[in-house]
Measured scan of single mutants.
Amino acid sequence: CHSECLGNCSQPDDPTKCVACRNFYLDGRCVETCPPPYYHFQDWRCVNFSFCQDLHHKCKNSRRQGCHQYVIHNNKCIPECPSGYTMNSSNLLCTPCLGPCPKVCHLLEGEKTIDSVTSAQELRGCTVINGSLIINIRGGNNLAAELEANLGLIEEISGYLKIRRSYALVSLSFFRKLRLIRGETLEIGNYSFYALDNQNLRQLWDWSKHNLTITQGKLFFHYNPKLCLSEIHKMEEVSGTKGRQERNDIALKTNGDQASCENELLKFSYIRTSFDKILLRWEPYWPPDFRDLLGFMLFYKEAPYQNVTEFDGQDACGSNSWTVVDIDPPLRSNDPKSQNHPGWLMRGLKPWTQYAIFVKTLVTFSDERRTYGAKSDIIYVQTDATNPSVPLDPISVSNSSSQIILKWKPPSDPNGNITHYLVFWERQAEDSELFELDYCLKGLKLPSRTWSPPFESEDSQKHNQSEYEDSAGECCSCPKTDSQILKELEESSFRKTFEDYLHNVVFVPRKT
């Protein structure tokens, strides 16, 4: 048989008469490798580009789960590009990614509803959504962080984005990388972005840091009482949809009607710091009717980097990364020049730590249904340095008659930039024990000054392991946590139920 035959053949030295091919099969003959313009397919066939392209389009058009959109890589027609490569849609070739590779997620039936953290986790790592997304989240724990972890990498949506009755959302900033909504599939009414009845939605994105392009379709905003109209108009300008909307697409009466839409800028007039305090004062603000001013709200939190936005980490279910302080308005003076500047002394802060701070007014709604208010920009203030805590785990070892090696770990709280350490030492008198000992005694162990690591005695271990207080009263049991108490109650309830079950099964009433 021919060298490319495997198993047997019907005619000697003829690659077209093989029972099976050793390498690849091409047009009725066995070959060692697939010549151009053919590609290896499933490690035994040679196919042309049209064959591989037909497989790709067949799966793409069917949208069946589990099928493969075949691509070409290293002269092979394979189910998908290997790690580190992405497909070129024009020629199906796998090309190296520039940075992290995109991950295209194809949605069944063309859309997916995100109504819980669990459903959001199914899209973790996706960068391109081939379909439409509907966000409908009523509640949950730590929602802002969970949504950002699972949806934060999405850069492109081919269909539309719909935010509907998501009472738990305060902001859409968890879509931190969303840059493009194509609108290839539109919501009824030709809408590519749809926001309806979101009672706590206050911000779409921080438009000073976020760009969003909507290729096709219109915007729809109705019944978002805490979303200011200025935020919607800003989205029109940034996304390129200005002029597409009709009169009733953006409701003037049901958007922002319960919001404090600040239209003035508060400026800080005085800032002073110490290692654990920050004193702030800002310019006074009074609405047209000074009785509408209820006070100020001061927001602050630790910020290692200057990239904080107002609604980071917030949701309507209680999660809030900001510390909020309510401040009463100052006494009002008739003389504008003698107006008191409101302020606040922030206490209990960490030394040498940068804080993000902003302040906003708290006002009631005027009778004319106009909203007044003022808010400052987010500023960054760093507390002063102070003395560091003591170095940890000092170790001293003498390696000769004239040297001592000293080692330690950095302090747990540096409280500033540590530039150097101060080492103090003092000579001590020799131990009298060394002169009084009889060095001729056998088995004498000389006193040693070398360091030995501390260890816990058996008594201390027994005390720590004991669940009861000892007789001397030195140790006591740790208080039980809520989960331990709940577990004990469940076990007790189970024992009672099981005992009742045994009584009912074992003891049967005697027939009379």
Rank of each mutant, 00 (worst) to 15 (best):
P411N: 01
E262P: 09
A120R: 01
S119N: 14
F365H: 03
Q339C: 10
R176D: 05
P330N: 09
I327Y: 05
F275M: 07
R370T: 04
Q403M: 11
A149T: 08
Y300T: 10
A195G: 13
T118W: 12
K112A: 08
L227I: 07
E146P: 15
Y194D: 07
H106K: 11
P287K: 03
W408H: 00
L153S: 11
R138Q: 06
T364S: 12
A195D: 02
Y194S: 11
K350H: 11
Y160M: 07
L252Q: 10
G139T: 06
F299Q: 11
G256V: 06
F193I: 11
D328R: 08
A195N: 09
E302L: 08
T113K: 15
Y305I: 05
S239P: 02
Y285E: 01
I129S: 00
V104G: 03
N334M: 06
L180D: 14
P329Y: 02
Y305R: 11
L392R: 12
R179V: 05
D393C: 14
R164V: 05
Y305G: 13
L279F: 07
A259L: 13
L219N: 09
S132K: 02
E231M: 04
F174L: 11
L280G: 01
N142D: 03
R291D: 12
P329F: 04
S333T: 15
G110D: 06
S158W: 15
S132Q: 09
L331K: 07
Y270R: 03
V324E: 15
L266I: 09
N211C: 13
F358S: 04
Y380V: 12
L294G: 12
G256T: 10
T323W: 15
C126R: 00
G373P: 04
E236W: 08
N198G: 06
R247T: 11
P351T: 03
L172K: 00
G131T: 02
K407L: 12
L196G: 08
R138W: 02
Y167C: 12
I135N: 00
E310H: 15
R164P: 04
I214Q: 05
L406V: 08
S338C: 07
F311R: 11
N150G: 06
L293I: 09
E246R: 10
S274R: 09
W207T: 07
V238I: 15
D289F: 01
D206W: 06
A149F: 07
F358Y: 04
K242L: 12
L229R: 02
L201C: 02
C105L: 01
Q339L: 10
K103L: 14
G217V: 00
T383K: 01
M346H: 02
E231H: 05
A316T: 03
W408M: 02
L201R: 00
A356Y: 00
Q258G: 02
F175C: 01
A303V: 12
N198A: 07
P410S: 15
C317D: 02
E237S: 12
Y223N: 10
R291S: 10
A316M: 10
K337D: 03
W282C: 15
L219R: 02
T213L: 09
A316P: 14
C126M: 01
N340R: 02
L123A: 05
F268D: 00
P391M: 03
A168S: 00
Q382M: 09
L294N: 13
E148W: 15
V397M: 12
N224R: 00
D328K: 15
G152M: 04
E264V: 03
L204Q: 01
H106P: 09
S402D: 14
Q354E: 05
L107K: 03
S269L: 11
L293P: 05
P394R: 13
F221S: 07
R291A: 03
I395Q: 10
D312M: 15
L349I: 05
K301R: 07
H222S: 10
L108V: 10
S166I: 06
S192A: 03
I357V: 06
N320A: 11
S400L: 13
G343Q: 13
S319L: 05
L169G: 02
V238P: 13
S239H: 03
W352K: 13
Y194N: 15
Q314V: 04
L201Q: 01
L180R: 11
D312V: 13
I188W: 09
K177A: 09
D312R: 13
L147H: 01
L161I: 13
I188E: 08
C228A: 06
E184L: 08
L229V: 04
S389V: 02
D206N: 05
S321R: 13
S319V: 10
T127L: 11
S132F: 00
E283S: 06
D315K: 03
I114L: 08
I379G: 02
R370K: 09
E146W: 13
L294Q: 06
T241R: 11
A303E: 01
A145T: 11
T113I: 08
A149R: 13
T273M: 06
V325T: 14
K277P: 00
T371P: 06
E236C: 03
L345V: 08
N387S: 07
Y223P: 00
I379L: 08
L266D: 00
D367S: 06
P284L: 13
D315I: 06
T361V: 14
G110Q: 13
V308R: 04
A120W: 10
I214F: 11
F290P: 13
E302H: 15
E283L: 07
L123S: 01
L204G: 05
F299H: 13
A195F: 06
L204D: 00
F175R: 00
Q306P: 03
G183V: 01
S366L: 02
D257V: 07
L294C: 06
Q339D: 10
E246S: 06
R291E: 15
I134Y: 15
V104A: 11
Q314E: 02
K360Q: 12
A374G: 11
D393S: 12
M297H: 13
S333G: 11
G256K: 02
N142Y: 01
E187Q: 03
F220V: 02
L219Q: 02
C317M: 02
D249Q: 06
Q354R: 05
E302C: 03
D206P: 06
Q403P: 00
G189P: 03
T323H: 15
C261E: 02
Y167N: 13
N198R: 00
L107Q: 03
L147A: 11
M346L: 12
T127H: 10
S239D: 05
D257M: 09
S389P: 03
D292H: 10
C126S: 01
N224H: 10
F290Q: 07
S274P: 00
N263G: 15
E148S: 05
L212D: 00
A251Q: 12
L204C: 12
D257G: 13
A168V: 11
A120P: 02
L107M: 03
R202F: 05
N248P: 12
T371E: 02
T254Y: 05
K267V: 10
C317T: 02
D312A: 08
E155G: 11
G139L: 14
W352M: 14
N190T: 15
N387M: 14
R202V: 07
V359H: 01
Q216I: 04
E156M: 13
S171M: 04
R247Y: 04
Q258P: 14
P342T: 08
S192C: 04
L406P: 01
A195S: 09
N340P: 07
S173T: 05
P284C: 00
Q245S: 09
G125D: 06
Q314A: 10
V128T: 10
N340A: 07
V359K: 00
G140I: 07
S319M: 05
